[in-house]
Amino acid sequence: TETRTFDSEEEAKKAQKEAEKQGRTVTITRRDDRWEVRFD
């Protein structure tokens, strides 16, 4: 599991799309003013 933090939802969604192309499961969580993206 890898976790990355982004400043914008746009960036988080971009990372999510990339990871899903690779067949990974992605979870996006809102953390205050940041977006946390978890790759499984």
Rank of each mutant, 00 (worst) to 15 (best):
T27S: 10
D7F: 14
V37Y: 01
E11P: 01
E11F: 03
R38L: 09
Q22F: 10
G23M: 03
D7G: 09
S8P: 00
K21M: 13
R4W: 15
W35Y: 05
K21A: 15
D33S: 06
T3C: 14
E10R: 06
R34T: 09
T1Y: 15
G23D: 03
E11Q: 08
Q22K: 09
E9S: 03
G23F: 04
T3M: 12
R30L: 10
A12V: 04
E10F: 09
T29P: 00
A15R: 03
T1K: 09
E2N: 11
V37C: 04
E11M: 07
I28W: 00
E10H: 07
D7S: 10
F6E: 00
R31F: 09
E9R: 03
Q16V: 14
I28Y: 00
R30W: 09
D7W: 14
K21D: 13
T1P: 12
A19Y: 14
D40V: 14
E36R: 02
K17T: 11
I28F: 00
R34W: 10
R34Q: 12
Q22A: 13
K13M: 14
E36W: 04
D33L: 03
Q22E: 13
S8E: 03
S8Q: 04
E2S: 11
K21T: 10
T29D: 03
R38W: 05
F39K: 02
E18M: 10
E36N: 02
D32M: 08
T25Y: 06
T27M: 04
Q22W: 10
D33K: 05
A15Y: 15
R38Y: 06
E9H: 06
E11L: 06
T3N: 06
V37G: 02
D7I: 07
R24M: 15
E11Y: 03
V26H: 00
V37E: 01
I28N: 01
R31M: 10
K13V: 14
E20W: 11
K21S: 14
K13A: 08
T25W: 06
K14N: 12
T5M: 15
T29F: 06
E2A: 10
T25E: 06
F39T: 07
G23I: 01
R4A: 08
D32V: 06
T3Q: 07
E18D: 11
T29Y: 06
K17E: 14
D7N: 09
Q22D: 11
T1M: 13
D40Y: 10
K14A: 15
T27E: 05
R38M: 09
F6D: 00
T3W: 13
E2Y: 14
V26G: 08
E10Q: 09
R34P: 01
T3L: 13
D7R: 07
W35G: 00
T5K: 05
K21F: 09
A19E: 06
T5P: 02
K13G: 05
Q16T: 06
E10K: 07
R31P: 02
D40N: 11
E2F: 13
R31K: 13
T29I: 14
T3D: 04
T29H: 09
D40W: 11
T29E: 07
D7P: 08
K14S: 11
E10I: 08
I28Q: 01
G23Q: 03
F6P: 00
K21W: 08
E11S: 06
T27D: 03
D7H: 08
E10G: 06
R34G: 14
I28D: 00
V26L: 02
D32P: 04
W35V: 01
K13F: 14
A19F: 13
R31E: 04
S8F: 04
D33T: 05
V26A: 15
I28R: 02
T27W: 04
A12L: 03
E9W: 15
V37K: 01
T25S: 11
R30H: 08
D33W: 02
A15N: 03
R38T: 14
R31W: 05
R24Y: 15
T27G: 02
V26Q: 00
D40T: 13
Q22T: 10
R24A: 08
T5N: 06
D40A: 12
E18Q: 09
R30Q: 10
R34M: 13
R34E: 06
E9F: 15
E18V: 08
R30F: 15
F39Y: 13
E36V: 11
V26I: 05
F39E: 07
S8L: 05
S8R: 05
S8N: 10
R4C: 11
E9K: 03
D32F: 08
R30S: 04
K13Y: 15
E18R: 07
D7L: 11
Q16H: 05
D40Q: 11
T29R: 09
E18N: 07
T27N: 05
R4F: 13
K21I: 10
E20H: 08
F6H: 01
D32W: 04
T5E: 08
V26T: 09
F6G: 00
E20Y: 08
R24L: 14
D40G: 11
D7Q: 08
Q22S: 11
K17D: 11
E11I: 03
R34A: 10
R24E: 04
E2I: 14
T1E: 11
E2V: 14
A19S: 04
E18F: 06
E36T: 03
K13C: 13
A15E: 06
A12F: 02
E20C: 10
D32N: 15
W35D: 01
K21R: 13
R30N: 06
I28S: 01
K17F: 13
R4N: 05
F39S: 07
K14D: 11
I28L: 05
E10A: 11
T29K: 07
A12G: 01
F39N: 04
F39A: 06
R30D: 02
E9A: 04
A19W: 12
D40K: 06
R34L: 13
V26N: 01
R31S: 06
Q22I: 10
D32K: 12
R24T: 06
K13Q: 12
V26Y: 02
T1Q: 12
K13P: 00
A19V: 04
R24D: 06
W35Q: 00
D33G: 15
E11H: 03
A12R: 00
E20I: 10
T5D: 05
F39Q: 05
E2D: 09
T25M: 09
E11K: 06
K17S: 12
F39W: 11
A12M: 04
S8V: 04
A12N: 00
V26F: 02
D7Y: 14
F6I: 01
V37S: 01
W35L: 02
R31L: 11
A19G: 09
E10T: 05
R24N: 05
T29S: 09
T5Y: 15
K21V: 09
K17V: 14
F6W: 02
T27C: 12
E2Q: 12
R34D: 05
A12I: 01
K17P: 01
D32H: 10
G23T: 02
E11G: 06
I28M: 04
R30P: 05
F6K: 00
T25G: 06
E9L: 15
D33E: 09
Q16W: 08
V26K: 00
K13I: 15
E20G: 05
R31N: 08
Q16N: 02
R24I: 14
A12Q: 00
K14Q: 14
R24P: 01
D32I: 05
T1A: 13
R38I: 12
K14F: 12
A15Q: 05
E9G: 02
R24F: 15
F6Y: 14
V26S: 12
W35R: 00
K14R: 12
V26M: 02
Q16P: 00
E2P: 07
G23H: 05
R4H: 10
K21P: 02
E9Y: 15
A12T: 02
K14E: 13
T3P: 09
E20R: 07
R24V: 11
R30A: 06
K14M: 14
K14P: 00
R30E: 04
S8T: 15
I28V: 10
T5H: 09
E10W: 11
T29G: 05
I28H: 00
E36H: 05
E20S: 07
R30K: 13
T1L: 12
A19R: 02
D32L: 08
A15H: 09
K17Y: 14
E20V: 09
E9D: 03
K17L: 14
Q16E: 07
E18I: 09
E18Y: 06
K21E: 14
R31A: 06
R38S: 12
K21Q: 13
T5I: 15
